Amino acid sequence: MEVLDDLERRIAAALQINPRASWRTVAHALDEHERTVARRGTDLLSVGRIAAVGIRSRPASLLVRARCTPGSAPVTSEALATRADTSFSYMVTGSTDVVAEILTTRDQLAHLVSVDLATTPGIAHAETLPVLKYFRTIRSWRIGALTPREVEELGGPRLARDGAPFVDLDLSAQDKDIVDCLVANARMSFEEIARRAGVSETTARRRVEWILSSEAVQLRLLVEPAAVGLPLEALVWLRIAPAKISAIGESLRRDTRVRYAAALAGSSQIVVDVTLPTGDDLYRFVTESEWSSEVESFDITMVVRARKRGGRLNDPSVA
């Protein structure tokens, strides 16, 4: 995979902090020419090397660990990835072949577990692990390419409320149209959103601000870890005594190497998605982190193919 150059990394890092930031704002923060930033940033977005998208908030989510019939892991990964309610779908190493996260509602869980997964092509056995709490999601992962001053210029750290409780909002038909716009393209202009939702530009601006502040949609900038020098990705499944979950989760939330961490109900109590330069770095992550001595046991599955991330399908030729 082609690695982003220095300016491309800094543009991506800026949009991680604020996916809707104007090119003028980004250029000012990075002390670069606006025309250069706009051209390079637009190129990155247009060819899909980065993507600004939104994820609809849902009251329930669960991870699926699927064992597949021989040779069918790509089919299963594809089937799960193309579901509208799937946020990610990975092919992995180990006794599990595919791992996916599904965002849903509590009244749909029974059908999802008993029917949808049972009829998904290629699945021989599926373990479902409901998410109890998020410590970090990829919207608060940072590639670390900016100085503190540049971060401040873009509006500060803006630590995402990954563990915030779900709030069931009463969205109008126009609000739902606006949500659809932000999910498809988090950088869509207010003018275009207004046209698609059939409202004035002023109304579109006001409703977007309300939708985002209410967490009905969570925006994130997607960039493949390998494109920023982190080619090794692993899911680490931790088994922990209940009394230690919160402290370990908080430690993981602070760790810049962690893309995603969540408390689960099931055979593992926490799952961690970590991206690193080498296997040696992964070894140090699991043996030398401040929480390592507090974990009863763990499993590691390496991500070998990411068909979907952040609700967005990757190009199958490079995923």
Score class of each variant (00 low, 15 high):
Asp5Gln: 10
Ile11Cys: 08
Ala12Asp: 03
Ala14Pro: 03
Ala14Ser: 14
Ser22Thr: 15
Leu44His: 12
Leu45Ala: 14
Ser46Arg: 15
Ser46Val: 03
Ala51Arg: 13
Ala52Lys: 07
Val53Asp: 02
Val53Ile: 12
Leu63Gln: 12
Cys68Pro: 01
Pro70Leu: 11
Ala73Pro: 00
Ala73Leu: 06
Ala73His: 01
Leu80Gln: 02
Leu80Thr: 03
Leu80Phe: 05
Leu80Pro: 07
Ala81Phe: 01
Tyr90Ile: 00
Ala100Asp: 03
Ile102Tyr: 02
Leu103Thr: 02
Leu103Lys: 12
Thr104Lys: 05
Leu109Gly: 00
Leu112Asn: 04
Ser114Ala: 11
Leu117Tyr: 07
Thr128Met: 01
Lys133Tyr: 13
Ile138Cys: 01
Ala145Pro: 04
Thr147Gly: 04
Ala160Arg: 15
Ala160Trp: 06
Ala164His: 06
Pro165Asp: 11
Leu169Tyr: 13
Asp170Leu: 10
Ser172Lys: 02
Asp177Asn: 05
Ala184Asn: 12
Ala186Asp: 08
Glu192Ala: 15
Ile193Arg: 06
Gly198Lys: 12
Ser200Arg: 03
Val228Thr: 11
Gly229Ser: 04
Ile245Val: 15
Arg259Lys: 09
Ala261Tyr: 12
Ala263Thr: 13
Tyr283Gln: 13
Tyr283Arg: 15
Phe285Ser: 09
Phe285Lys: 06
Thr287Ala: 11
Glu288Asn: 11
Glu296Asn: 14
Glu296Phe: 04
Pro316Met: 00
